[in-house]
């Protein structure tokens, strides 16, 4: 039986990387007596997969992982049990039973929403950058721009030249910061910092990464070209 778990990650936990988060949750499953299924073989591992790795230093309000469990009886009260084994900075937001035909979160994810703003207690990133009056217009100007926005993307082996324009779905001002929806997942994926950097260069604003903070707001799949949050599917446990 497939279960999707939604959680948030914030505070000091943003410094725990993706692989270590996986190991953290593997242990949490045991501490919370979740009847998780194991693979066969001499060193069996839990059947668990994450929707999309989150970069070190980023917070998130919408992280997802899918697990396979062996019994639904053992899932009673699971959300409470799991929550009790968490540390400060990781919160379980919801547990849902997925239809058996549901594809994994990892293969479904198509878009990610991010919020980028000023990091607390740091020198101001480009004076009044996030609160400038015409920021909204500048954003619109950028993502409505009819031409291409070409960037060079470093991969492990080579450099790739791509147009990121079609990968930006939305950009707007939100709470003294920028909200954006961009392509994510295995086929197309861009980092929010890259978008911000291109935005700055588009408007000839100097770009500096160090005083910003990024929060991933949610992850989406697509149905008929429309975004659907990964948290939508399944029945609440």
């Amino acid at each position: 039986m497939k279960i999707r778990i939604k959680f948030s990650k914030y505070g000091v936990m943003k410094y725990v990387g993706h692989l270590d988060m996986m190991r953290f949750f593997q242990k949490a499953m045991r501490r919370a007596f979740i009847p998780i299924a194991y693979s066969e073989g001499f060193s069996p591992h839990q059947i668990m997969s994450f929707a999309a790795p989150l970069g070190v230093g980023m917070e998130s309000q919408g992280e997802y992982m899918d697990i396979e469990v062996t019994s639904m009886e053992g899932m009673e009260g699971a959300i409470k049990r799991l929550q009790e084994t968490m540390v400060e900075g990781i919160e379980i937001q919801g547990l849902k039973k997925l239809p058996e035909s549901e594809k994994s979160a990892m293969s479904q994810v198509k878009r990610a929403a991010y919020w980028i703003g000023q990091r607390e207690g740091t020198a101001v990133f480009q004076e009044n950058f996030f609160s400038q009056k015409n920021l909204d217009e500048k954003l619109k100007e950028f993502y409505m721009y009819p031409g291409e926005i070409i960037v060079t993307k470093q991969t492990k082996r080579s450099e790739k030249i791509i147009d990121i324009k079609p990968m930006i779905y939305k950009m707007e001002v939100l709470k003294e910061g920028i909200y954006m929806e961009v392509a994510a997942g295995s086929t197309e994926n861009i980092k929010p910092t890259m978008v911000l950097k291109e935005f700055c260069s588009f408007h000839h604003i100097p770009y500096e990464e160090k005083n910003i903070q990024i929060i991933r707001m949610d992850l989406y799949t697509e149905k008929d070209g429309m975004p659907i949050s990964l948290g939508e599917t399944g029945e609440i446990l």
Partner: peptide, 14 residues
């Protein structure tokens, strides 16, 4: 954000 393995310095472990 600059150092290798920042989780070395944060505590907060189970």
């Amino acid at each position: 954000n600059r150092v290798e393995k920042p989780a070395r310095y944060i505590g907060n472990e189970v």
